[in-house]
């Protein structure tokens, strides 16, 4: 079974470490805006990381006109082949999490690829808000019940 990213919004402290290490890893610069993972801040000051969830049936993969988005057979990640990508932005429009975006500086679409099976964001998160786990049936996925007390409305 593939390991998957599991987000625990209630644990996030909003330090942006995930976005920083992601941008450093991808671009060699510190630019959280161009990372594949973003930290969203809520009106009450709470924060939570948002990233590609590598869906079971990826809408981005379906809509891509050039077939640049494919599932990696080894890691199970939905990855973007930048050489085949024409930058049409269809994937960004279809992503239910809004986690694919256009990096104007480097002229590429930015999407999480699980760092080749070893996601740096899960390694660096100091609060345990991002985990990389093998999923089991008995795990509690009632995110809404856990995040409920923390959130009101996204800014």
């Amino acid at each position: 079974m593939f390991r998957q990213i599991v987000i625990r919004p209630e644990a996030c402290i909003g330090c942006k470490s995930c976005a920083l290490v992601c941008s450093m890893n991808r671009t060699g610069t510190i630019s959280p805006e161009n990372a594949a993972v973003t930290v969203c801040f809520l009106k009450n000051g709470a924060a939570m990381p948002m990233m590609c969830m590598h869906c079971e049936e990826p809408a981005c993969m379906e809509v891509c006109p050039t077939g640049a988005i494919q599932r990696d057979a080894q890691t199970g990640a939905v990855v973007l082949n930048t050489e085949m990508c024409i930058g049409c932005g269809q994937c960004a429009l279809r992503c239910p999490f809004g986690r694919i975006h256009w990096d104007a500086r480097r002229a590429v679409m930015v999407k999480c690829d699980l760092c080749g099976g070893h996601p740096k964001c899960a390694d660096i998160c100091p609060a345990g808000a991002i985990d990389f786990l093998e999923l089991q049936k008995e795990m509690d996925f009632s995110v809404i019940s856990r995040i409920g007390p923390k959130t009101e409305e996204v800014e």
């Binding site: 209630e10 402290i13 909003g14 330090c15 000051g45 709470a46 100091p126 007390p149 923390k150």
Partner: peptide, 21 residues
């Protein structure tokens, strides 16, 4: 107090501030 949520500054892993419900 029922919930304690930690708050951290940018690029800080300590999170010394807390939000207490």
């Amino acid at each position: 107090c029922t919930t304690v949520v930690r708050r951290a500054c940018y690029s800080c892993t300590v999170g010394c501030r807390k939000c207490v419900r």
